[in-house]
Design a binder for these strands. Structure first.
Length: 115
DNA sequence: ATTCTTACA
DNA sequence: TGTAAGTA
């Protein structure tokens, strides 16, 4: 599971935007007992999708309508091509890491110097 | 050090 | 949307 800080770093979205999308009901996240948000692969995809739709639609309502319609039609797994497009719309700090995260590969996090 | 919510130049 | 404030 990823923290909001890691998701910011990974997607280039601000924590403000992430929390706002949740606030308006476009997405919801799991919470730790302490109330902190926890993110999984699918959340990353959805967050990037929201930003993409927001650009196309202009407002939150437009995004909501399109997301509802997609739900009714059923979601399909992202192709490598769609993944590439989704991650190249905006600058991200670690695109290779983002691509791996979207494919479910564990992204190594900087840890304590063990040597 | 991080994250969370609320409020506002 | 950014950011400051006061917590957990």
């Amino acid at each position: 599971m990823l923290s909001i800080g890691e998701v910011e770093q990974l997607t280039g979205l601000s924590s403000r935007q992430i929390r706002y999308y949740e606030k308006v009901g476009l997405i919801h996240f799991q919470r730790t007992p302490g109330g902190q948000r926890r993110f999984v692969k699918h959340d990353i995809e959805t967050l990037l999708r929201i930003r993409q739709l927001l650009d196309e639609e202009g407002d939150i309502e437009g995004v909501k309508r399109r997301m509802e319609r997609e739900q009714q039609l059923g979601q399909k797994p992202l192709s490598d091509q769609e993944r590439a497009k989704l991650t190249s719309l905006y600058p991200v700090s670690d695109r290779p890491g983002l691509l791996r995260a979207l494919q479910g590969i564990e992204v190594p996090k900087p840890k304590r110097p063990s040597k």
